[in-house]
Design a protein around this nucleic acid. Structure first.
Length: 961
DNA sequence: CGCCTCACG
DNA sequence: ACGTACGTGAGGCGC
């Protein structure tokens, strides 16, 4: 690409609006940007950013933006043209008028011609401009424009998803399409077709073949004329679809004879209307963009907003808090005391609303107070007890709930008003917590962000906090399950507010990081108060959102009540027999060393077996193992995964040895060595269950992860023997749902055959095998059952013939046959899968029995791989998520029952479809049937497919199964 | 810190 | 033509 040294005097940019808007919209699909009014602003923001970038970097002298307008001549030529296109997503429809207004604000003309598409208009104008000596840049991500590229007409592909902006000139186009002349681009485009535009092309010809054929014949016409030189099926197709091929070329051609005149004067770049833009950006809540291009809003420097559009645009939606009962201020003696001590408080309600320039603590009116005398604490407690709802937060010395010590408590019940109560110097944390016990034990609604953490901290002081709870983290988890729910981010997104970063107080992460206990209370106070205040405000934002999404019940009946249950489960912990672990570690170490010796002998050299890089080089470069079928990872390394090595194990003993080595060293490092290190003084490990991580509604477990303790292999299973009851008076009790997900699938699909199998209590995999392989039940052998089981799982995951073939080691053809037979035998299952996808296409989300959502914004993507992945999610998410709903309900009910009955049995683990208890021996007979009942009856499935639960007990986790 | 591999449901 | 079953978390390697 050779640019003249001097910038061209006349530089015209023509933007393809819809192509850029669609791209922006999908760029934000994974992480949608929503403003406080609930508008998805991704498309507008992306488009505006692109526009601004080009204005600043490229400084065009002339510019215009083209929109498509109405049906085009292409629809008349072919009624199917673009028939495949989904209707415009609603979010884009809403975005268009904003984008047009923004363009008006920039004084950039909008170009459109009824009956022509943007590319035709852009092509026509570009050629006219070129004749008048312009350097023209067509701004679009669409490769079809390549056919228009000349010496002075180029494509400007804006920066996208990490790729830098790119200018495509003639040389790029010729290289990209592997043609000699730019004119041949349309031949390639037409020949290969375009599914998303419904340009049919010629069957059997894709990108690769199209390039080869055009290289050979030069054009579609010439290809057809010389089809006698082609062979077999290809010749047949080219002959039979000759006309379709020509039509496709025609459809792919951009027409540069649009009756429109290039009037340079109208496209001259002008200065924007800053006020208009500022108002628009305000309304859209594009704060950073606004500051960047219109100048920052330094607090106080901005003139008072006059009445009128700017003033109105700048107005924030109100954060309205329901009136609390009383305040520390203006009422009673406490207010007087605080007023006297702080000398700063102003009663009044100035904190109710955020204004345009408010961003951080310094910009927002607030009444934050340090409560650090016995009289103040007493007074605060009195007010707390009068409230219906209070947000509270704990300040501690660390994140580990088992070791962190309490430093202070903060409370808020009025927006903008909060109180921080430090642990008094002459008192213990224990005494402070006890002082506020009347509040914690009350039935006032307790609002918190990740409130399980606070419950656990308080549990260390023997305080059992009473509900109801409202956790803002969980509220947001239901609103946007696949986003992060960190409070600072939530505050930025929903309150347009940046809380004080904790590092401002305790310093950056590192060796000398302080803790809250190292700081004087008055330095902690604002931070702590802010947390409680922000949390309260988030609650007021989220509640109406949840209500309108139909998620409030799920939050109030499942997620919030589960919080204290999980806190108890984590607090209880699981006893680990560290001694047994130690012995097993030594045993494994012996095996691992033997294997290492053997592997080195086979390899003829020593190397790090744990390094996939070194291992790949030894196996494939040096030893030349498995010639011909070498797999590589996406980063170009040799793949040495389980799949590859098992394949080789038959021919090369070293492969089997490596697999065994891998398995045993994994067991040792991940479990046998790591677990004892996490055992607390009480002899137990306390995992953390994260309630806001998975996209489907499941829990996850960390520190350690107790949801992936080995069971599938003999040597792995051994580890479960070290999971033992807390003392001699207890037994481990494990209760498993049997095939929940398959039952849910059977129920949702309403498939009579499969439902019948479950109703009769049959072995479903066996009965599936009997149906799929057309043999009587009694003749199903182990192999058939194993295959049928894999198929059943496959169905839940959104089966593909390829995936199934790989898993059970059969050909794709056989897999296709099995799937076909399966769908014949269980037609409603097929129907269910199709329905799930279609429903998700319309809604752009999937939902569970309890209305939990998983957004699937890529389900209408034109990227086939991405779409396929999302379609499988549309099938799987409701099933996996409903199973999660069910076990969560069961956990709440069991926990409540154990508590109500004052039993000593404790729930200690959840592993997706299993609950584990530390059961008091004398209670086992009593709790077993009840646990079974509460699990099977947790939720009733719509078609009444019964749930089944197996319960076992034993002196360790393995024996309990 | 990203990648690979592998443990579980 | 493409790439391929759903959902997680952790350890070790190598940059």
């Amino acid at each position: 690409m050779s640019e003249p040294t001097a910038a061209p005097a006349k530089k015209l940019f023509l933007l393809d609006a819809f192509a850029l808007i669609y791209r922006s919209h999908f760029a934000f699909a994974k992480n949608p940007r929503v403003n406080s009014k609930g508008m998805n602003t991704g498309a507008v923001l992306g488009f505006t950013n692109t526009l601004v970038e080009v204005l600043q970097k490229e400084q065009p002298t002339h510019i215009g933006v083209c929109f498509d307008a109405g049906k085009t001549f292409r629809h008349e030529k072919d009624e199917n043209y673009k028939a495949n296109r989904q209707a415009m997503p609603e979010d884009i429809g809403i975005a268009i008028p904003y984008i047009k207004q923004i363009l008006e604000g920039f004084h950039i003309p909008i170009l459109l011609m009824k009956g022509y598409e943007a590319d035709d208009v852009i092509g026509t104008l570009a050629q006219q401009a070129e004749r008048e000596g312009f350097e023209v840049f067509m701004m679009t991500p669409d490769k079809d424009y390549c056919q228009l590229v000349t010496e002075h007409i180029k494509i400007y592909r804006p920066a996208f998803m990490g790729n830098a902006a790119e200018v495509l000139d003639v040389a790029h186009v010729l290289a990209r399409f592997e043609v000699e002349r730019v004119e041949q681009v349309v031949d390639i485009l037409g020949l290969q077709g375009d599914a998303s535009d419904n340009i049919p092309g010629i069957p059997g010809i894709g990108e690769k073949t199209a390039k080869t054929l055009i290289q050979r014949f030069g054009s579609v016409e010439n290809l057809i004329a010389n089809s006698d030189q082609l062979k077999g099926k290809q010749q047949e197709n080219v002959r039979n679809f000759a006309e379709q091929g020509l039509l496709s070329k025609e459809l792919a051609t951009i027409h540069v004879n649009v009756p429109i005149e290039f009037e340079p004067d109208k496209l001259v770049m002008e200065a924007p209307d800053a006020n208009r833009l500022r108002a628009l950006f305000e309304e859209l809540e594009f704060r950073q963009l606004s500051a960047r291009i219109l100048g920052g809003e330094v607090a106080g420097s901005r003139p008072a907003a006059p009445a009128g559009p700017v003033g109105r645009g700048a107005r924030r939606p109100k954060v309205v808090a329901p009136a609390g009962q009383g305040s520390l201020f203006g009422e009673g003696s406490a207010a007087v005391v605080i007023a006297a001590e702080n000398g700063e408080f102003a009663p009044g309600e100035a904190h109710q609303e955020y204004h345009g320039s408010t961003k951080t603590l310094a910009d927002v009116p607030h009444n934050y107070h340090l409560v650090d005398t016995p009289a103040l604490r007493k007074s605060l407690l009195g007010f707390l007890l009068q409230q219906k709802e209070v947000s509270f937060d704990t300040e501690t010395t660390g994140l580990n709930t088992m070791t962190a010590r309490l430093v202070g408590l903060s409370f808020s019940w009025h927006v903008g008003e909060a109180y921080y109560v430090p642990v008094p110097q002459d008192e213990t944390a224990q005494a402070l917590v006890e002082e506020f016990c009347p509040f914690f034990e009350s039935n006032i609604v307790k609002i918190g962000q990740n409130i399980k953490y606070d419950l656990l901290i308080l549990k260390n002081y023997q305080v059992r906090v009473n509900g109801p709870f409202f956790d803002t983290m969980l509220a947001h988890y239901l609103i946007e399950p696949d986003m992060r729910h960190n409070m600072d981010v939530l505050a930025e997104t929903y309150l347009h507010y940046t809380p004080v970063p904790i590092t401002d107080l305790i310093g950056p992460k590192g060796k000398n990081q302080k803790t809250m206990a190292d700081l004087p209370p008055n330095e902690v106070s604002d931070y702590a108060c802010e947390d409680a205040d922000v949390t309260l405000q988030l609650r007021h934002v989220f509640e109406p959102m949840l209500k309108s999404l139909g998620l409030l019940e799920l939050l109030n009946e499942v997620e919030n009540p589960l919080v204290p249950v999980l806190a108890d489960v984590e607090f209880a912990g699981v006893r680990i027999d560290s001694e047994a672990m130690g012995e097993y570690s030594a045993e494994l170490q012996g095996y691992v060393q033997d294997l290492e010796t053997q592997i080195f002998k086979e390899a003829g050299e020593e190397f790090n077996i744990g390094s996939p890089k070194q291992l790949g080089e030894v196996l494939f470069d040096k030893m030349q193992v498995g010639r011909g079928t070498i797999k590589k990872t996406k980063t170009g390394q040799y793949a040495t995964g389980e799949e590859v090595l098992s394949q080789l194990a038959g021919d090369y003993p070293i492969a089997g040895l490596i697999l065994e080595y891998r398995q045993l060293s994994k067991l040792r490092s991940t479990y046998v060595e790591a677990l004892p290190q996490l055992v607390c003084q009480d002899g137990r490990v306390h995992t953390s269950f994260n309630q806001a991580v998975t996209a489907t509604g499941r829990l996850s477990s960390t520190n350690p992860n107790l949801q992936n303790i080995p069971i599938r292999t003999e040597k792995g299973r051994e580890i479960r023997k070290a999971f033992v009851p807390r003392d001699d008076n207890h037994l481990l009790l494990a209760a498993d749902y049997s095939q929940v997900e398959l039952r849910i699938m059977a129920d949702f699909s309403g498939d009579a055959t499969m439902i019948e199998a479950f109703r009769l209590g049959q072995d479903v995999h066996r009965s599936t095998a009997s149906k799929v392989f057309h043999v009587p039940l009694e003749e199903v052998d182990g192999e058939m059952r194993r295959k049928a089981k894999t198929v059943n799982f496959g169905i839940i995951y959104g089966i593909s013939a390829f995936g199934l073939a790989q898993r059970i080691g059969i050909s794709r053809k056989e897999a296709t046959d099995i799937i076909e037979t399966y769908f014949q035998e269980f037609p409603s299952v097929k129907q269910f899968m199709d329905d799930s996808i279609n429903r998700a296409r319309e809604l752009e989300y999937a939902e569970t029995l309890l209305k939990r959502r998983r957004y699937l914004r890529d389900i209408n993507s034109r990227n086939a791989t991405l779409r396929g992945y999302t379609e499988r999610n549309a099938i799987n998410a409701p099933i996996q998520g409903t199973a999660a709903d069910i076990i969560k309900k069961a956990m709440i009910n069991i926990h409540d029952w154990l508590e109500k009955e004052r039993l000593g049995t404790k729930m200690i683990l959840q592993v997706h479809d299993e609950l584990v208890f530390d059961a008091v021996k004398e209670e086992v007979d009593y709790v077993t049937p009840k646990i079974k009942e509460l699990m099977t009856q947790a939720l009733l499935l719509p078609h009444g497919v019964p749930l089944e639960v197996e319960v076992g007990t034993g002196s360790n986790w393995l024996k309990a199964h």
